[in-house]
Design a protein around this nucleic acid. Structure first.
Lengths: 136, 136
DNA sequence: CTGGGTGCAAAGTATTTGCATGAAC
DNA sequence: GTTCATGCAAATACTTTGCACCCAG
């Protein structure tokens, strides 16, 4: 994703294109999932005087415009990701890394509907365990 | 669950049996899922001078001893529950209520293992949507 | 221009910690 | 009697807000 893509994305969601916002989008694109502190630390390199408040305001704005997603992780801080195809998360309990995996959750939803009237709008799946790298 | 059961549970996990702890366990047994503030407000009725710090310390101790579980909910505060049979959660986006449902997630884990070496230790599933009551 | 974003400082909220007292065992 | 829990107050951590200044459109 280049500068232009980020700009277009921001514009599409009626957010003014600022260098800080572009950088947030690009960091997330590059790293997949980041928490607020990770974002802050990385952006400090580019914007030595950026404020944590700016990160919070922008992340919240992007979550509201629904092009960022907050992922709540067991025993860790929430991370944010660009919204994309539905997917589940793999959280390594050793290194803390997070991977995406595309899985069809419709089997679960079908099983649920057979025993409940709950109307599902979203299904979040988080696997905790040990990633392939840490198994070595 | 009566007073005796809670005491036994606490003893089994090497926690001294205090009235506050018994009350926490019984509240959770009665209500299923509660966040820290709910617990605090309810316990205040029984213990007018109980401290939030006591709730935090005990909840954290019980999570560490692995007989409480923290459930992270999208767009809401974490809730705690007594550990029991593996189950998934249904979160109503209208009333905020949380229900349990027992589902077999092994299909998902099988699908995952076919495309990843991740070694799953735990699978958390949270459905968001509208509960049967709020659909009316 | 004009609206909205940024960074700073302050306020607000959430959670943890240290310590004296008192209860559990 | 010894250990550890409680409640209070203070400390820390996390997040939001208000405002003056500045940049994007």
């Amino acid at each position: 994703m280049n500068m232009l893509d980020s700009s277009i994305l921001l514009k599409e969601y009626n957010l003014k294109v600022t260098p800080q916002r572009v950088a947030i989008v690009e960091e997330l694109y590059k790293n997949g999932h980041m928490n607020v502190d990770d974002l802050y630390k990385n952006l400090l390199k580019k914007f030595p005087s950026i404020s944590l408040a700016t990160i919070y305001k922008n992340v919240n704005a992007m979550v509201e415009k629904i092009f960022l997603n907050e992922v709540k992780i067991p025993e860790a801080k929430s991370v944010y990701e660009l919204i994309k195809e539905n997917h589940s998360h793999l959280v390594c309990s050793l290194c803390g890394g997070i991977e995406d995996v595309v899985l069809d959750t419709s089997v679960l939803e079908a099983a649920l509907s057979s025993q409940s009237n709950f109307k599902v709008e979203n299904t979040d799946v988080v696997f905790s365990g040990v990633c392939s790298h840490c198994q070595k």
